[in-house]
């Protein structure tokens, strides 16, 4: 598993604390929505960057009021066919104004990276022998867009109207 963020391979600064192990005493952690609900005060008291991981049946509305506390929101694709997180990503970016890291986790296929980028993800938990190479290939696949999403890429319609 490798993490690509803003087009670069990076080491994940967040420790996944969603398992049975106790939270590390310090440093950035990634917790589940349930953990956030149960240990909100303690997590905030740590004073280190906090990430939250949402399952595909946990819409971002649940955390909309708390977004300022999170440096990272990880949206889960339990199966690549489960496309709910594309909508969640757009809502987080375009409606709730989330500007932190938006990470795709779970069954993340390279073929889907562009859809993810366009809906607002900027970080990807990916597999494969050459994740960065595949990432760049996937990025170069297409250059014409028909839908306005929050990523700022101009659509074909917008470009036509400029001419």
């Amino acid at each position: 598993m490798a993490l690509i963020k803003d087009g670069k391979l990076v080491t994940d600064p967040f420790v996944d604390a969603s398992g049975p192990e106790a939270l590390p005493p310090t440093g950035p952690v990634l917790v589940t929505y349930d953990q956030w609900q149960a240990e909100r005060a303690a997590l905030l008291a740590r004073g280190t960057p906090l990430g939250i991981r949402l399952h595909s049946d946990q819409p971002p509305e649940l955390i909309a009021a708390d977004l300022r506390h999170f440096a990272l929101v990880a949206l889960e694709f339990p199966k690549f066919r489960d496309g709910r997180a594309y909508s969640y990503a757009r809502l987080l970016r375009e409606r709730y104004g989330f500007t932190g890291e938006l990470r795709a986790v779970g069954d993340v296929l390279l073929e889907q990276l562009f859809f993810m980028l366009r809906t607002g993800f900027d970080a990807f938990d990916v597999q494969g022998a050459d994740p960065l190479g595949s990432y760049r290939t996937a990025l170069g696949d297409l250059s014409v867009w028909y839908q306005p999403t929050g990523d700022g890429r101009p659509t074909a319609m917008q470009l036509r109207r400029k001419h």
């Binding site: 690549f80 066919r81 489960d82 496309g83 594309y86 909508s87 757009r90 889907q112 562009f114 859809f115 993810m116 980028l117 366009r118 809906t119 297409l142 028909y146 839908q147 999403t149 074909a156 319609m157």
Partner: peptide, 12 residues
């Protein structure tokens, strides 16, 4: 045009 490769709705 709107529907072709819609990033949000390709995995309905």
């Amino acid at each position: 045009q709107y529907s072709f490769l819609h990033p949000e709705f390709s995995y309905l």
